Amino acid sequence: MMMMKTKKVKLYGEKLRKLNTAIHERDNNCCIICGKYVGPNEKFHHEPCGAMKSDEISKGVTLCYDCHAERHFGKNSNAVRAQIKEYLQSIYS
């Protein structure tokens, strides 16, 4: 079976700021995990993160600092990842 390669989007400057604003507005400036307010200057979280991250509205969410840290380093990382995936799928699928 041949895997299709997806093109990653990499935005800079004003385009990246506009994407960040759009994601925050979509999420009502609140962490999608715990509901805590997140200021509009806080950078959104990519999901998936790492080498597969892409600057697209359907691949970004608003996370507070604590939930962002939990997603990357916490014992509940898999649960947070699953919540993010479910949230994005509920909007974009």
Results as ranks from 00 to 15, higher is better:
G13V: 08
K15C: 09
L16T: 09
L16P: 08
R17I: 06
R17T: 10
R17E: 15
R17K: 15
R17V: 10
K18D: 15
L19Q: 09
L19I: 13
L19N: 10
N20Y: 11
N20P: 11
N20D: 14
T21A: 15
A22Q: 14
A22L: 15
A22E: 15
I23K: 13
I23S: 08
I23Q: 09
I23V: 15
H24K: 10
H24D: 12
E25T: 11
E25D: 12
E25F: 00
E25A: 07
R26P: 14
D27R: 14
N28S: 08
N28E: 13
N29I: 03
N29W: 15
N29D: 13
N29M: 13
C30F: 03
C30S: 14
C31E: 06
I32N: 10
I32F: 11
I32G: 11
I33C: 02
I33W: 02
I33R: 03
I33A: 02
C34K: 04
G35W: 08
G35C: 07
K36D: 04
V38W: 10
V38S: 13
G39V: 07
G39P: 04
N41S: 09
N41M: 04
N41K: 07
N41H: 07
E42P: 03
E42V: 15
K43F: 08
K43Q: 12
F44G: 02
H45R: 02
H45N: 01
H45P: 00
H45Q: 04
H46F: 05
H46V: 04
E47C: 07
P48V: 06
P48F: 04
P48I: 07
C49A: 10
C49D: 11
C49T: 03
C49G: 08
C49Q: 05
G50K: 01
G50W: 01
A51L: 05
A51P: 01
M52Q: 07
K53I: 00
K53M: 08
K53P: 00
S54G: 04
S54N: 06
S54C: 09
S54W: 08
S54A: 07
S54P: 06
D55N: 12
D55E: 03
D55Y: 00
D55I: 05
E56G: 01
I57R: 02
I57K: 09
I57L: 13
I57W: 04
I57T: 03
I57E: 13
S58T: 03
K59M: 12
K59C: 07
G60Q: 07
G60S: 14
V61T: 12
V61G: 11
T62Y: 09
T62G: 11
L63P: 01
L63I: 03
C64F: 06
C64T: 03
C64Q: 04
D66Q: 00
D66K: 00
D66L: 01
D66P: 00
C67Q: 01
C67K: 01
C67P: 01
H68V: 02
